[in-house]
Computed example of a mutant assay.
Amino acid sequence: MSEQGPGAGPWRKGQPEAHGLSSETLNRAAETLAVADERQGLVVIRNGVLVYERYWRNDYHLASPEWRNVSFSSGKSWGSTMVGLAYTKGLLGLDDLAARYRRPDMSGLRPETTIRHLLTMTSGGTLNVKPSSRPPRRLDDPRPPGPGVEYAWEKVGEKGSPPGYGVWLPAGQAFYYDGAAADHLADIVAAAAGVSSHRFMMEQIVSPLGCENFNYQPEGVDRNDNVRFGGSIVLSCRDMARLGQLYLNGGRWDGRQLIDADYIGQATSPSPANPSYGFLWWLNAAARVPNAPASMFFAAGARGQFCFVLPDQEMVIATMGFGAAQLSAEAAWDALAPAISQLPPSSP
């Protein structure tokens, strides 16, 4: 797959019509997405060019392309990229035991848990967890951000988890979507790389990608300078789209193979326990999002933080926001689909 996108510089801009899209239908899609007055932004990339963007002001956001939204769990796909870079550099193997880098008495993970298990949400769980990402504050909320969150031991698994989760459930036996176990990948990468996961991410992924408005919530970085792996990123829609473009490029960026193509392929392929999940990316091979292309894969976070990657259309669509409504991937796609359904094949 040919490399496209902005490299280390800003996105190149173009008109939708020059890339087979319609400004009118994109405007309708944006207005449908924004009907709950909770979207902050929508960015559409085709053929590596930013062809459309809209931004809105509300109680939590400014209508600015530089505004940083809270990633929630869409940050997991950035975390997957951190593991992918460590794999690319030969610092770790996907079937390495997690215990090689972080002892089970520290992580709470089963001794047989591998990095692959953590990437595919089949680790068997842990009771040593960090709390969830903090929601964004209202624009009129003067409180300062809180301190970094630390691991704490729980007595039982969270409500809805499988029997024995985090205690005796064997790794590899069941898929259970849980960011708490995945958070330990940040410590694993740090041990493998010899630098904190925060530094590894910012210096070796965020900087090469040319992200302009990307950081972590202060609460998302602990006393060891390791990040909450499954969230707590604050970033613009434009920067979210860079992640999608990296995967659309098969891991190539700015003239080099930043992430091994084999890792990208595995990350966006069905895992044995869940055909709708790869390595911390949601997949559409099993029609998780009805009427969307089967080849689509996407990062997803609470309250509608999405980065849809459409390989057959050479497109990336990022939309973020916050509010009381829980915008689902299905609802987001229903809004976007009319703007994409008549799209001709991508230009070479």
Rank of each mutant, 00 (worst) to 15 (best):
G93R: 15
P270L: 08
L26Q: 02
W282C: 04
P338F: 03
A318M: 04
L91I: 02
S328L: 07
V70N: 03
R46Q: 11
T319W: 09
A324R: 14
W333D: 07
G20F: 08
G20P: 08
D334R: 12
L118S: 03
A8K: 12
E38Q: 14
L109N: 10
F214R: 00
A302I: 11
P170L: 14
P270Y: 14
D95H: 15
Y263P: 00
L94Q: 05
W153L: 12
G41P: 12
P6R: 11
L139V: 10
W281K: 00
E212N: 05
G230K: 02
Q40A: 08
A318Y: 07
P162Y: 06
G244Y: 11
N27D: 15
Y52I: 03
V234H: 00
S77Y: 01
Y52S: 04
S64W: 01
K130E: 15
G148A: 08
I264V: 15
K76L: 02
R228T: 02
G125S: 08
F298D: 03
R242W: 07
Q40Y: 01
S196V: 04
D260C: 08
S132E: 11
H198I: 00
R143N: 15
G164R: 01
P147L: 12
A300I: 09
Y263V: 00
V227K: 05
S64P: 10
G79V: 00
P147R: 09
G5H: 10
S2C: 04
N27R: 11
I188V: 15
N224P: 01
D334M: 05
N274R: 13
G75H: 00
F72V: 07
